[in-house]
Each structure stands twice: as C-alpha cells, then as structure tokens.
Amino acid sequence: MSEVTMDAKITLEQLNVHFGTNHAVKDVTMTMATNSVSAIIGPSGCGKSTVLRSINRMHDLTPSARVSGAILLDGENIYCKECDPVTMRRRVGMVFQKPNPFPAMSIYDNVVAGYKLNGRARRSEMDGIVEQSLQRVSLWDEVKDRLHVNAMQLSGGQQQRLCIARTIAVCPEVILMDEPCSALDPISTLKVEELIDELKEKYTIVIVTHNMQQAARVSDTTAFFYLGELIEMGDTKKIFTNPEKKQTEDYITGRFG
C-alpha cells in the first residue's frame, strides 16, 4: 500500500456529497495511483458515479449538490477557493455513459473541440492532433477517409471511441470513465477495454462500472461502494479473490443486489 500512496495522483479526503437532503457520498477517503486503472464498483445508487463526477467538479452544474472534504490532484486541492475548475478539467477529462459527440459537428471538429478552446490553432497542428488521437483510440483507419462527415453517422461504439479521442486530444493527465461501455455491444466493449489497457501507460484512469468482470479485466485496483460508503479498496486480484469485508464478498459472489 505504501508504494501506491507514494505516487498518488488523486487523493480523496473525507469526501461528502449531498444532493439537497440526500447524503449521497459519505466520508470517502481513497487514493488512485499515477498511471493505473482504478475501478469503482457497487450496486446501483451506491454513489459510485457521484464520486467519479466530483473528481472533475461536474457537480458544479447541479445547483442542489454540495461537496465537502478535499480532492487532491498531485497534492493540490481542486476544491480550494482560488482553484479554477475550468483549468483543472483540462487535466481531468471525462468519458460518459452514453456516447455524447456534438451532433452538429464533423468527426474532425469533435476531436479538436476541446483543443480549439485555448486560442487559434494552426491547421497542420490540428491535423496532427486529430490523427494522433484517433490512432490512439484505433478509430483512425475506420474514419480517415470521412473525417468531415457528421459524427452522428458513426456507430455507437465508434462514437464512444470518438468521445475518448476528444478527451485525450486536450492531453489530460487523468481520464474519468462513467460506465463507458454500458451502452455498447460486446465487440465495441472489448475494443474500449483494450483501449483502456493501452491508455494507462500515459494516463491515470478511474472507471466506474457495474460490470464486475469488466472491473476484474481492466483495473489494477478496485474500490467497492455501498450506500454511499467506501467499503473496501485494494488490489483488484485481492478484492475479487479474497476480499476482507463480508459485504464485498457477498456482492462479488452475487449474493445481494
């Protein structure tokens, strides 16, 4: 464990999230290591997505949400007063449950949508970024001849990979994935899982999934949440073969839900 904490990329300290009167996340403290894949699992409504979304302050959009505690990104609290969520989010990208490309844009424009925000970029520079990002999500060969067609013409799986390409085009350090495969067919799911494995060389990845096999396949560490609380976190192999807590074991073996 000490090894993990040493190169901690993200640390949650006593994180609490309220929606109105609903206490959705309770006193969560956990750490995600640099260049690792951390999976968050748990039954529906256990607060796993809420935890994930607090790591890039997506709750800022929800008026009723209240976040307390601290989330350290490279040792700095992203919830501090002077801290700017806009700059922070460029370091912490996010991929959502349902593919959400911008429907009014071409494939090309979707990839550079985030990149273009920071001022005028040269065409050649953007061409390079589009190719690189699409290569990385292995979409390049499928779409290189039709970069300027509307993004909605892609299949669901391709759209999701496009969204990942859009996320990595801004060179984040962390990628948050909120059940990225739940809307995809098995083949697309497999492709995205392979992709996650490749991406972890460069990025720190946190993935929420309700699919335990997926967590077991892609992650290095796994955290189990239940009713807004972190029940157990540890090495994925250990969690799935020899969990410490009874609740974890019951969930893993499918004895409750």
Partner: peptide, 10 residues
C-alpha cells in the same frame, strides 16, 4: 497558456 485562460474567462 495563462493569458489564454484569462482571455477565455473574460
């Protein structure tokens, strides 16, 4: 970089 952010925020 910093100036770009400043401009965007303005």
């Amino acid at each position: 970089m910093m100036t770009a952010i400043l401009r965007r925020k303005m």
